[in-house]
Amino acid sequence: MQEKGTKKKKANNNVFESEYTNLKRVTTFLKEHSEEIDIDNKFRQELVTLSKSYKETLDESRLITKVSDRLQRKVETAKQKLEESNIELQETVDALTKARVGRKAATIVLIIAVILFLVVEGVLEPIIDDWVAQNFDASYTTPFSLGVKLILALLLRPIEMVVEKALMRNTAKKKVNELKEAKFVKKEPKVEGK
């Protein structure tokens, strides 16, 4: 623990400036006319009491206003931090969803690739070979067949992107539906006696 001192500071608070000016005017008036007005004068006594009480109330108001301002500042800072954390959390959730969807899309594309490979090898290749042999020279069958396979292989990446997009859309739709349902459940009034 470290002692900071016992210094008394009278901070100026402009919000109550006019009230303090009024108070000062009254206390100055009382001082200036102290000899004119009898010390036992009831009006004087009441005015002294009133100005003392007014000063106390003013000091308290100033303190409470300051405390309130600080609280508001704290709440605002906390709110900002919360909003920032929410954004970060949302970004993380989005990244995780994207990664999950990406993995799912890659699996689907792999299955598609296997099916395509089997279809090309088992069904398309003999058809292509026959067609090339009929229309072109027989030596073109291998490059032609490789070309078709290359085109199909190159199509895998766009297919993956399309699948990924579709899955993302589906996930977003599910999320919206969940939120809608949650909102609906929240708003539904309680049925008593059931």
Partner: peptide, 22 residues
Amino acid sequence: DMMEAGEDYSALLEAPFELLEI
């Protein structure tokens, strides 16, 4: 904020007031 609050209170009081940092 709490330090400033202490300063504000001390300004309104006559009793000895110590501000101690933890």
